[in-house]
């Protein structure tokens, strides 16, 4: 029992952070599935959502600020696509990726300007930030609800993609971008919808993430963003269940490194963040299409 209560927090934290990575990873994997673009700005959208929450909650009650933050984040995601990616639709893929890096740079500098470079304290959200005790281990309630919320959202998303008309359009567009256009699919609205869903999930993810790690800085989005992307690649880019599995694996393994750190004589806690990248390189080496990815062949 003692052993359990000592080690359980790591596992719980792992599952929880895995769920948060999953919510971000879906945004990456959906965009990549359709546009073949690594949306480098996605991690920063996540950061912006966190930052807006800090400012919104300072001036209005929680039941207003949470929906407002989600709506504005979705709007920002939509705008970023319209302004920075849409004009480059015919351009080489590299240009779009550079544009994404530019947007990321802009959002970070904007956040730096607004915060003045100081880390902002994330507000205490009633109920989900409260302490609870699970099997003798004390933790925040957000840790417990994250995996469930994540799975519910993913199931809803899969239903949306499998059952609705826009979902069908998305599947068609990710299968073959050009042909789907010829079949009368309004590709721009499909892409916008992808960004809207991705930003929505990133906003929810940021609510959960920052309730646990309560300080928001302009560069806080980079690392979770990259890890979420690794999760998406690990699961097979374009595949939503794959992203979910990959994110949970990364989240749990990361915290297992922290757990292991207690038992070894030298400090390896720094390697927590490097783990995701080591995993990425291994997976790309052995199975470049990821766990659930489709095999691709090059045509000359």
């Amino acid at each position: 029992m003692d052993w359990l209560s000592r080690n359980l927090p790591y596992l719980l934290a792992g599952i929880s952070v895995g769920g948060q990575y999953a919510l971000i990873a879906i945004g990456y994997t959906m965009v990549y599935g359709i546009l073949r673009l690594i949306n480098f700005a996605h991690g920063d959208i996540f950061m912006v959502a966190g930052l807006m929450m800090v400012y919104a909650s300072a001036s209005m009650p929680m039941y207003l600020s949470i929906p407002l933050v989600i709506i504005v984040t979705v709007l920002i995601g939509f705008m970023v696509e319209r302004v920075a990616y849409k004009p480059l639709r015919q351009a080489p893929r590299m240009s779009v990726m550079i544009s994404a890096i530019g947007v990321s740079y802009l959002l970070q500098n904007l956040a730096l300007y607004i915060t003045g470079g100081l880390a902002q304290q994330y507000p205490h959200i009633p109920w989900i930030s409260d302490q609870v005790t699970v099997l003798g281990a004390s933790t925040k309630r957000v840790t417990v609800i994250t995996p469930f919320l994540t799975v519910i959202l993913v199931v809803l998303l899969v239903l949306l993609i499998k059952k609705t008309k826009i979902g069908m359009a998305m599947r068609a567009a990710s299968k073959d971008f050009e042909t789907s256009q010829l079949m009368g699919i309004k590709i721009n609205s499909v892409i916008s919808m992808t960004f809207i869903i991705g930003s929505f999930l990133a906003a929810v993810g940021s609510l959960l993430f920052f309730s646990n790690y309560t300080s928001v800085t302009p560069t806080v989005g980079t690392l979770p963003g990259l890890k979420a992307f690794v999760a998406a690649v690990f699961g097979g880019i374009g595949s939503i269940p794959g992203a979910l599995v990959g994110a949970f694996i990364i989240g749990i393994c990361e915290n297992l490194v922290m757990l292991l750190n207690q038992y070894v004589s030298f400090d390896i806690s720094n390697f927590k963040d490097a783990f995701a990248f080591a995993l990425l390189i291994i997976i790309l080496f052995f199975k470049p299409t990821g766990l659930f990815g489709e095999k691709q062949t090059d045509k000359v």
Partner: peptide, 14 residues
Amino acid sequence: SDYLAIATLGFAEI
């Protein structure tokens, strides 16, 4: 292309 980009970025982080 982009896989190379992310893998090299990852190596720099490691």
